[in-house]
């Protein structure tokens, strides 16, 4: 499939279906974009497994860090790549090897050859996007920044649990 644009339905299905996300390039530095994304996705109750050889054995945001994807001791639904486009090559092959269902490359990360291999192996691929931003666009939180979601809906936004100022991408009634 083409990867210049993604339909709302495609992104929504991925973010609704995945539960465990391995985040490669997760940082312990609390002003790094990967830290922001990880913290946000944890509040949306995803199970995040940070991967970073320099932090292996320690914890980031209370989650145990692994040195590589192959060492993770639980099934992974999605691999989120916070590394450059070149590094995404080998990481995509590892994602295929560990049985992930989705390979997600962050903003400014794109590797079409790797994407093609992943799709041949039956994985879904998203490139040059941030799952935090996409979650915000789908839930309605993105608009709080005055940012364009591209969505129009006459349905009430869905609150996330019992929190203040937190919206969910769950379909109403589900």
């Amino acid at each position: 499939m083409q990867h210049d644009t993604y339909s709302e339905a495609y992104i929504r299905k991925i973010l609704q279906d995945v539960k465990t996300i391995a985040m490669v390039g997760a940082s312990a530095n609390d002003v790094r974009p990967s830290y922001f994304a990880m913290k946000y996705l944890l509040t949306k109750e995803y199970n995040i497994v940070p991967v970073n050889p320099r932090e292996a054995g320690r914890e980031i945001l209370g989650q145990k860090v692994f040195s590589s994807l192959s060492e993770i001791d639980q099934p992974v639904d999605m691999v989120d790549i916070f590394r450059n486009s070149e590094a995404a090559d080998a990481l995509t092959d590892e994602a295929i090897a560990i049985g992930a269902k989705v390979v997600w490359m962050q903003l400014r990360v794109r590797n079409d050859a790797a994407a093609e291999r992943a799709e041949k192996a039956g994985l879904k691929v998203v490139m040059d996007r941030c799952p935090k931003m996409e979650y915000g666009k789908l839930s309605g939180e993105w608009g709080w920044l005055g940012a364009v979601s591209g969505r129009i809906s006459s349905k009430r936004a869905v609150l996330f649990g019992n929190r203040i100022q937190s919206l969910s991408i769950a379909t109403r009634g589900s």
């Binding site: 609390d30 830290y35 913290k39 946000y40 509040t43 993105w142 929190r163 203040i164 100022q165």
Partner: peptide
């Protein structure tokens, strides 16, 4: 919501007012 929510908002880590 709580102190952590406040810190996340001030640190630009969470969306919200």
């Amino acid at each position: 919501d709580d102190v952590d929510h406040a810190a996340s908002l001030f640190g630009l880590q969470a969306f919200g007012n």
